[in-house]
Amino acid sequence: MKTTHKEVLFGLYDDESVLLHAVHKAKHDHLEIMDVFTPFPVHGMEEALHLSESRLHIAGFIYGAIGALTGFMAMTWIFTRDWPIIFGGKPYWSVPAFIPITFEMTVLFASVGMVVTFFTVSGMGFGVTNPTLDDRITDDKFCIAFDVSQSEEEEVERLKGFFRESGASEVSTKTI
């Protein structure tokens, strides 16, 4: 993706409610939105863009289960097979005493796993520079972007018309 350059036409909006209207309008007009960029999460955007539900929590559950099993099985193996020792008259396999560490391992695996997964699937990480369209998107501008690399002139004009009608305050192009 990074090797090929994209020609992007984007419009900036001043308010998230205008943006939401615009997104609905774009969907209604069957325009293919490349992406929407906002300074903060705008509620209602998932439905407007028809984004599929995030599956991050499922990954989190799996990581947590692995963590729980790792912790519990490790302690079980160590205290019943590898080096069985009686502590305080308790049985080798003292389940109640294993619960705290099992719990901590569950949370540790789930959290670390999810955060790493989140940044990886979102293409982020230390040292990564993803192209941005406008510096004000992280401040107070709300942006809809269209990929116009392969678009005809009239298609671009149509998109510009869309921006005008939907209340964009600025429209420009950028190659990223």
Partner: peptide
């Protein structure tokens, strides 16, 4: 980390925040 503010990222971000 290369944050852009993409809608999909915000959606995952919120989901992550809730589960965390």
């Amino acid at each position: 980390l290369g944050w852009t503010g993409s809608a999909k990222h915000w959606q995952r971000f919120e989901s992550l925040s809730l589960v965390l």
